[in-house]
Design a binder for these strands. Structure first.
Length: 466
DNA sequence: TTTTGAGTTGTTCGA
DNA sequence: GTCGAACAACTCAAA
């Protein structure tokens, strides 16, 4: 057995269920865990300070776990190829082990690295790697339903059995490491703690609770019925294969058909994550271009975009969503659809503007899922969703936030508005506005656009697409 | 090759 | 209030 291997961490910030780590341990006496901060990513126009802080806190937590096993995290900063080459010489390492990552940026970077260094790719940041779910003729799927059927027809996801006492890593003491950046504490409102222990805890909470109420609960804006696992999956603090195998187990053990349907819905959400990873991998152009409908006539009014960003559109559920994003750096999935539909359909603003805004703020911001979600909502995406599917921000609010709890939580100035007006406060008679002290246009904006009119304009703009 | 059925998440209108 | 149809046309996936 050779002596030393490098374990290069990227989007797999965990020790458990980590196939790359396991392979490194099997191949070498000494394992050097390294994370490389890449300035190109840290300072890109899609970066988010809070997401970086979450990353740093995750590295901190990982370093603590490593120290408990006789290792430590080596942190470097710079170009990964240069840093890995240097570290390999310093440590006299014979090989590098890493989990594949599939974004266009990562793919380019990793091709360069495998041309120059002895790197072994082990595991996958998708449950099933791109290229493993293909049509009969070998082409990639571009429609979710057949993709998911093929995905489910493949052999069940196998996780390596958990070992008893994990063996030490023996990371040498003489290797230089940057201090892990002192993550500014996550803002007080952010409801996520970094690290695999927190991920595991949330997974177990979800499995022992909401997984069987997921189908009905996940669309309620003010409920805690979603899994809340997205930030952990984003950074690999939870293995996606672990989530999938727990989903399968929940399906198998469901007490009744309703429960089974719920667990299946959750598994489908995980498969959607794979779907968009595969789409971005096979069609990297979607990062910049519409998947279909190449010529939507966007209006792109900058003042309206500002109002949308600030949660000042005058549509309570849209504004609540945006303000929740500002406060928690996370947004409920239903809220994402509502606010994205409003930006693209009601304001006719290019989905790329919203996509960037989300990436700059979402703690779980991921290029594949974010791009897929925006293009789906904009009607330009892979699925042949009809363009006339335009969300009505009032009826969406009434349906998914019937008591206005979500709205009142994030828009305190609407606190006194009665339920019947909470999603359309501009309809309050002026004496009521006066009585409760909420004057529309003064204490809270009047609607930025009239939805019925905006809808008609959107239908025109999309129909005009040649 | 051709044919056929289908496509996450919605809204509105009129019976 | 409830229900079904219309909203368009296209492309995908599989038989």
């Amino acid at each position: 057995m050779s002596q030393t291997a490098i374990w290069w961490l990227r989007r797999d910030l965990r020790l458990e269920d980590n196939q790359a780590l396991q392979a490194a341990l099997e191949a070498a006496e000494t394992v050097i865990p390294v994370f490389i901060l890449d300035p190109r990513l840290l300072h890109s126009s899609y970066a988010s300070e809070v997401r970086s802080a979450f990353l740093f806190a995750g590295l901190q937590s990982l370093d603590e776990s490593l120290q408990a096993r006789g290792g430590r995290l080596i942190l470097r900063q710079g170009d990964p190829l240069a840093e890995l080459s240097r570290l390999r010489q310093e440590a006299d390492a014979h090989a590098i082990y890493a989990e594949p990552d599939y974004s266009p940026f990562a793919t380019r970077r990793d091709r360069q690295i495998e041309d120059a260094l002895p790197v072994h790719w082990v595991g996958s940041s998708a449950i099933r790697p791109p290229g493993t779910v293909l049509r009969g003729d070998g082409a990639p799927y571009t429609i979710y339903t057949p993709f998911s059927k093929a995905w489910k027809a493949l052999p069940e996801i196998q996780l390596p059995a958990r070992r008893g006492q994990a063996r030490p890593l023996n990371t040498p003491d003489n290797l230089a490491s940057l201090p892990i950046p002192n993550a500014p504490a996550l803002p007080a409102g952010v409801p996520f703690r970094a690290g695999e222990a927190a991920a595991r805890e949330r997974l177990e909470d979800f499995l022992s609770g909401m997984v069987y109420g997921y189908t009905s609960g996940r669309n309620q804006l003010d409920s805690q019925a979603t899994s809340g696992l997205s930030p952990y999956l984003r950074f690999g603090m939870l293995a996606p294969q672990r989530a999938a195998s727990e989903a399968s187990r929940a399906i198998a053990q469901a007490p009744d058909s309703l429960a089974r349907a719920s667990a299946e819905t959750w598994l489908n959400e995980l498969i959607w994550r794979d779907f968009y990873i595969h789409i971005l991998y096979h069609y990297p152009r979607v990062r910049r271009e519409n998947f279909r409908l190449p010529h939507v006539r966007w209006r792109n009014n900058p003042e309206q975009f500002q109002a949308w960003c600030a949660g000042q559109t005058g549509y309570p559920v849209v504004d609540a969503a945006q303000r929740a994003l500002a406060a928690e750096d996370w947004m409920h999935n239903r809220a994402r659809m509502i606010t994205a539909s409003f930006l693209t359909k009601d304001l006719l603003i290019d989905w790329r503007w919203g996509e960037r805004w989300f990436m700059q703020h979402l703690i779980d911001g991921d290029p594949a899922a974010n791009n897929g979600g925006w293009q789906w909502t904009a009607g330009t995406g892979t699925d042949a969703a009809p363009y006339f599917r335009i969300f009505n921000p009032v009826s969406q609010g009434m349906k998914h936030d019937p008591r206005g709890e979500y709205v009142r939580r994030w828009i305190p100035e609407l606190g006194a508005v009665p339920d019947e007006y909470i999603h359309e406060p501009w309809k309050m008679p002026s004496d009521l506005q006066h009585k409760i002290g909420v004057k529309i246009g003064q204490d809270y904006p009047a609607p930025l656009v009239d939805h019925a009119q905006a809808r008609a304009l959107a239908l025109e703009a999309y129909k005009a697409n040649g």
